[in-house]
Nucleic acid binder design. Sequence first.
DNA 1: CATAATTTAATTGTAAACAATTATTGTAAC
DNA 2: GTTACAATAATTGTTTACAATTAAATTATG
Lengths: 147, 147
Amino acid sequence: MSESQKYDCLKLENQICFPLYACAKEIVRKYKPFLDKLDLTYTQYITMLILWEKKQSNVKELGKNLYLDSGTLTPLLKKLESKGYISRQRSERDERNLIVTITDDGMKLRERALDVPSKMGKCVRLDKEQAELLYKMLYQVLDSLDS
Amino acid sequence: MSESQKYDCLKLENQICFPLYACAKEIVRKYKPFLDKLDLTYTQYITMLILWEKKQSNVKELGKNLYLDSGTLTPLLKKLESKGYISRQRSERDERNLIVTITDDGMKLRERALDVPSKMGKCVRLDKEQAELLYKMLYQVLDSLDS
DNA sequence: CATAATTTAATTGTAAACAATTATTGTAAC
DNA sequence: GTTACAATAATTGTTTACAATTAAATTATG
């Protein structure tokens, strides 16, 4: 086998992971100007997505939904609390649990976030069919990684 | 329009970006045990992928290839230098350029990295056809983000 | 009941990522 | 040739991310 063939598997262009990594990173960067207006980072934004729906959650559940651990979430939630978008208090039933509840200000922010998805959609050139296909494949990979 | 419909676009499950973000993150995490053996982080690994091929580059070029800026690369390259995998020196022709060159130890590492791609491949349940499709779509998105 | 095991969040330490700025070098304009 | 502009990397400050550990509360086991 030639030198080049032997090492082909280590070429950047033959990695499936790299475009995934780069794409995620660049998309998060594209969000920035839109999220800046809401005073949110991307990770804070996806945390708010959950809370806009559920109104209440806890660190463990958020971590499961977002694939994040308490080392990431604890400072992030303190930040969101300091901005007045959420409140944090221990559960009375089980004091190990930290209950995260969205505030009125947090709910108000939802209105201002309404146009973010469509603005982002315009940055990503994928038709509906392709987007659905990509979506399915990504969740398939995500599921296969869990096991 | 009902309350639920109005805010559907802000549901986590309707975001294409989130599985991308989560998937990239989880795959990088999956790399960790394999890369630990090489004393490399994921970002250091993809930097080495370039250098194993090209032997030499500079900060600007690496940044373009990897979608990273000097704020990320400068400390990373210093780290790789301290591990003995690369050397850093200013170009004589243009002292603004920092030339990054792989060392003998850096090249030796390539042998030990040879089985990383196949090991990672086993973690991701995608057949060849699907993987190629995903690959194309990701680069399509990446390209559309540039413009 | 008392001790062990488990669960949950917080903390610590390291690396990544990027925006904004700075410092230096090189190039262009006059 | 000097001054303005551009290019390049480094620095600074903030946030993200995670592994490993710690602390506290709860549950299970003897």
